[in-house]
Design a protein around this nucleic acid. Structure first.
Ligand SMILES: [Zn+2]
Ligand SMILES: [Zn+2]
Length: 805
DNA sequence: AGCACGCCGACT
DNA sequence: GTCGGCGTGCTC
């Protein structure tokens, strides 16, 4: 197999002889991938040795850009007069290997983009800056300066602009998070002295870094909390992420696996051993109920893969900042293995170093979010996708790829195992297990006998109304009573409401005015603590009007409820309770989410109010009551995936109450609804994922929706909706022309998007679908070429496998 | 996408 | 007279 990462660089291509004349028969042209929407490679004359996979600097129009040498060829279709030579080749960087380039080519084809548009954004920015090339690879025993926590502002204010070199150094440090001595000196000649002063002021810390230092034993924010060694489970903080918590359940310390775990581990290890053998490649779907110990399976699968010298593994998680404990678990379980993280929260410099560690084969464990699936991993032998159903694996802008799907494709090419783990698998993955395309590894038992599933109960709001029991600010009497009970026992309650702000609309009773955003077809949301109206779609903000802008009425009413309003109502209802609200607004500042979670774990909070942020990752040992305030909107959404998402979300948030529970029994989940007879709730109360999946898949099959068909979405946006619609109609007509028409393809009518206007542009979309993936792909390729040729005055893009339509 | 060139309106 | 608006066209 592909071992390009350890292979010595390929011999130089002798394009020119000693006199500078082309050698007969040698490739004279290199085709280069560039980050441009033009869907082609670009041909350049080979002026110096270059091999595919190397980064090159080339002239492009009037500027110099970095590209990837993709292939070599004898001749070009381009007018020879137009061909220009490569400016520079980065010889020191090992070439990006075939496996990575095939992955990029596949993603480009599948998502209907140019190769360069996919490949270049997958590489850290610093590697696309030739000025940085000389410094990026030299990393031996150097001083490293790290910006101290929270010191960015002090540094920003403390260094006056007139000290230009110091200012540059400060900016560089704030930008990159860490600087090595040579990088620092490049910014400021007196860097060592300056940085010593800054260290004295507490703004930076100084470390001495060995060659492979960033990879092992280096304290990330969490490692060090957990001791290494065989009894690692004993002392790891109990407040770990969901999967993490599985591994940390009390009896995990005995290191005995349940039958389900043992079977799963055995199946994955068999697949690891069979690699390259005759067995067909099959992905694993690890279906483990809450508390079944998925993380322990991951850990042992990883351990199995790493027995092979040089092998690398990739662990994908939905959002790394919500599951920071998982990093600690892996670091302490594999204290001698190099581990790096890859996610969008890393500073540029760190991102480049981590990416290079993966690319050079130094990092053996790469833990990251969706973008990590695009990293260069020359010895990749296993991918784990934790919470595989999570929508954040789908990139929602730019190249709209699904990291989970690319992980499956990537491992299929390598014939390496992939483990997709979830308590509520996506229906797409579930269906594939039914078809035998994925192998299902079921873990129905909980790893820890005293971890019990919570009781799920409904509060029928219709019934409450009939019985004339007051609902106070959206909180019913039974829910308030249950919370009061928890307060009395000193236990914690968690209220889940997927709506931030105080109220989604502000309105005038007198004339009907409502707080619409001027630039969007959405309401401005009232944010009370910030004393602002905010549009969640375009970011527009204004002060809260003291009187109605239309009629002057001073009695403006907030309509509906968000987390802030629930928090306010609770503080009045339970004045003695300590409340904490965790949502995107209360955790805007870096590190504040961690701090809030920490307070909850430390028992400094009685009632926690949160959006989906609290559903993911964190477990709260003392939470014995989870209240779901208002899930009803998702029950009747026009999006056919809304029920699937809601079920997963409620199962996940219910799991927050399912662990330590109370001495006298399981925790409780109370769901307020006006539709108590909805089958989704019935399945939820039985903890019956399989029943829910069966029923949903039947509905999808009858309606011929995914996964029983494949979809793509053409979206257009323009100043006027009519222009966007016009474009889509033209596109639809094009699809009916004889050259493109295909009876396996169907196109829906173009429609305005449900949120028509965002930030002043109006949007519409057109669904294309086909039961045949191949037919869809080839149709899209030809169609998109025609669309490009239209040169229409609208912005448009194509999304393959859209999550929301 | 950038980044040019280019051809018309209001500013020194 | 020229500064700058963004329409159209090209990048190997
Ligand atoms: Zn009014
Ligand atoms: Zn808006």
């Amino acid at each position: 197999m592909d071992r390009a990462g350890v292979r010595p660089p390929a011999p130089p291509v002798p394009a020119l002889d000693a006199d500078g004349n082309p050698v007969a028969g040698a490739p004279a042209i290199v085709r280069v991938a560039l980050d441009t929407p033009l869907p082609t490679l670009f041909d350049y004359l080979i002026a110096q040795a270059v091999v595919p996979g190397q980064l090159v600097q080339v002239p492009f129009g009037r500027r110099q850009v970095v590209g990837i040498a993709w292939e070599l060829t004898q001749r070009s279709e381009i007018d020879p007069a137009k061909l220009r030579p490569v400016t520079a080749v980065w010889h020191e960087l090992p070439p990006l290997n075939d496996e990575w380039r095939r992955l990029m080519a596949f993603a480009a084809r599948y998502y209907q983009r140019g190769i360069g548009e996919v490949a270049l954004p997958s590489i850290p920015g610093h590697l696309r800056t030739p000025l940085r090339w000389p410094r990026l690879l030299a990393q031996r025993g150097v001083q490293r300066y790290r910006l101290a926590d929270g010191a960015a502002i002090a540094l920003q204010d403390g260094v006056p602009a007139r000290l230009r070199a110091q200012r540059r150094l400060a900016d560089g440090l704030i930008d990159a998070g860490t600087l090595d001595a040579d990088e620092a000196r490049a910014l400021c000649a007196k860097a060592p002295d300056v940085l010593k002063q800054w260290a004295a002021a507490g703004w930076v810390t100084i470390e001495t870094v060995a060659v492979h230092e960033p990879l092992t034993g280096h304290a990330g924010p969490i490692s060090g909390e957990a001791p290494a060694g065989d009894d690692w489970t004993e002392d790891v903080p109990a407040h770990a992420g969901s999967a993490t918590q599985d591994a940390l359940a009390p009896d995990a310390g005995r290191r005995t696996l349940t039958t389900g775990q043992a079977d799963a581990v055995a199946a994955i290890r068999d697949a690891l051993a069979e690699r390259g053998g005759t067995a067909p490649f099959t992905p694993f779907l690890l279906h483990g109920v809450t508390g079944s110990g998925k993380t322990e399976v991951y850990l042992r699968a990883v351990a199995g893969a790493l027995t092979e010298p040089d092998a690398q593994v990739l662990i994908l998680v939905p959002e790394i900042n919500l599951t920071p404990q998982l990093e600690g678990v892996f670091r302490s379980r594999f204290p001698n293995e190099a581990l790096v993280t890859l996610h969008s929260g890393l500073a540029e410099g760190e991102r480049a170093r981590h990416w290079l560690a993966a690319h050079r084969g130094q990092a053996r464990i790469v833990l990251g979010t969706r973008l990590a699936v695009l990293a260069s991993l020359p010895h990749l032998r296993l991918i784990v996708v934790d919470e595989e159903h999570d929508p954040s694996y789908k990139q929602q802008e730019g190249l709209r790829y699904s990291a989970r799907d690319l992980a499956v494709w990537r491992t299929s090419q390598l014939e390496a195992p992939v483990v997709l783990g979830s308590a509520t698998p996506s229906l797409d993955s579930w269906r594939r297990t039914e078809q035998g395309r994925y192998v299902r590894l079921a873990m129905p038992e909980r790893a820890s006998p005293d971890a019990v599933l919570p009781r799920v109960g409904l509060i029928d709001l219709e019934n409450e109304r009939k019985r004339q029991r007051a609902v106070h600010e959206g909180l019913s009497q039974p829910l308030l009573a249950a919370m009061r009970d928890r307060l009395a026992r000193g236990e914690q309650s968690l209220l889940f409401l997927n709506r931030r702000g105080y109220a989604p609309v502000l309105s005038c009773d007198a004339c009907g005015w409502i707080s619409d955003c001027r630039r969007c077809s959405a309401h401005m949301v009232l944010h009370k603590p910030e004393r602002r109206l905010r549009c969640h779609h375009c970011g527009a903000e204004s002060r809260i009007p003291h009187a109605c802008p239309d009629c002057g009425n001073t009695d403006l009413a907030p309509l509906g409820r968000g987390t802030q309003r629930i928090e306010e109502a609770l503080s009045e209802h339970f004045p003695e309770a300590r409340l904490s609200r965790i949502d995107a607004d209360s955790t805007r500042r870096k590190g504040s989410a961690q701090a809030l979670f920490q307070q909850v774990h430390a028992g400094e909070v009685d009632i926690l109010i949160g959006t989906q942020m609290v559903a993911k990752g964190h477990d709260f040992r003392n939470v014995t009551l989870v209240g779901v305030v208002n899930p009803d909107a998702a029950l009747f959404s026009h999006d056919f995936r809304a029920a699937e998402r809601l079920f997963a979300q409620l199962m996940q948030v219910a799991g927050r109450a399912g662990r330590a529970a109370r001495a006298d029994g399981p925790g409780d989940v109370l769901i307020q609804t006006r539709y108590a007879s909805h089958p989704l709730f019935a399945a939820l109360m039985r903890h019956d994922y399989e029943g829910f999946a069966r029923q949903q898949l039947e509905e999808r099959q009858q309606a011929l929706l995914p996964p029983f068909t494949h979809q793509a979405l053409l979206r257009a946006e323009a100043r006027q909706l009519a222009q966007a619609m016009e474009f889509l109609k033209t596109a639809r007509a094009l699809a009916a022309t004889p050259e493109l028409a295909d009876e396996r393809i169907s196109l829906w009518d173009p429609v305005p998007m449900s949120m028509v206007r965002i930030a002043g542009t109006e949007r519409a979309q057109l669904v294309v679908e086909s039961p045949s993936r191949g037919a869809l792909q080839s149709f899209l390729t030809h169609w998109i070429a025609e669309l490009r040729a239209l040169r229409a005055p609208v912005r448009w893009h194509l999304e393959v496998d859209p999550l929301e339509i």
